[in-house]
Design a protein around this nucleic acid. Sequence first.
DNA 1: CTCAATGCAAAGTATTTGCACGCTC
DNA 2: GAGCGTGCAAATACTTTGCATTGAG
Lengths: 167, 167
Amino acid sequence: MTEEQEVFLRHLQGSGLKRTAQRDLILDVFLRTEEHMSSEDLYQLVKQEDPSIGHTTVYRTLKLLTDAGLAREVRFGDGRTRYEHNYKHPHHDHMICVECGKTIEFFSADLEKLQDRIAAKHKFEITAHTLRMFGYCADCRNSAEHRDNDLSAAEPRVRFDTAPGTS
Amino acid sequence: MTEEQEVFLRHLQGSGLKRTAQRDLILDVFLRTEEHMSSEDLYQLVKQEDPSIGHTTVYRTLKLLTDAGLAREVRFGDGRTRYEHNYKHPHHDHMICVECGKTIEFFSADLEKLQDRIAAKHKFEITAHTLRMFGYCADCRNSAEHRDNDLSAAEPRVRFDTAPGTS
DNA sequence: CTCAATGCAAAGTATTTGCACGCTC
DNA sequence: GAGCGTGCAAATACTTTGCATTGAG
């Protein structure tokens, strides 16, 4: 049994919940993913290994995994909720390429410290935060036709939380 | 005519669009707001001054205002799109109190510089970014019963993009 | 045996689109 | 007039919930 499975089992038992074959499988599939998966994405993968599993169970199990500290919800602004690994995969932030959709994860201790300092100045107590930077990744900058296009006509793959060009 | 109205008019003309009484009114109401308004919120306000205006027009006009650079979309993770002023109200980030829902806007040049440096390290070209810090504002910290509660039982008013406690 | 879990279908939310009529330009 | 704008209603896209049945402890 992996550490993750133990964490999950402990969470279930601690909450008076039950271990089921579906939950085991969903956790297993989730742990094998690398990307940021939506509930629907994961459902498609799980279905391949057990076609009898339904949407709802995947959806609810992802919430459970989040409660157990194994998963973490992330939203990139396209209206879909995605999940990423949370266990032994501590806080980080994201750069999201609006051209190819790729996400780059990064962590900066300086950034964290600076945020704490800003929060303190406002007497604000941080419990969580998200930083997302939208733009063009190295690959897409090289094949960079985007500079020549009328930006207002281009349909970004990821919808902005703030309009482009306001950083 | 205010500067904002001129900007809007210029955008409309430049795009072959037309000025209408509805658009004028919606812009006017929007400019008088302070908060981060959802399309629905603004619709409620607009309806008080002209009950014949529909949802859809407000919704589409907010998109127009965004295109014109007068408004900016923001999402705090509760599944609703909100709009804030963009004209002469440059980029800033948000702290969001999970207790009372209040948002604090702030800007830090150091933060911007640090982000640019991080992006450069990954050869990433930023076009936009959002930083959101969730937690407890000064007021709510004073009336701070939240420390005594079982956090897992508390229903935060704002849903997290990352689980609490991962900063 | 009891109570939670499952999967279907249906209900919510928030957003977006189709269309007939009306109004700018 | 021609074509965009408007408002209604309907369609999407996700997410969440109700309920009868199944299954874990």
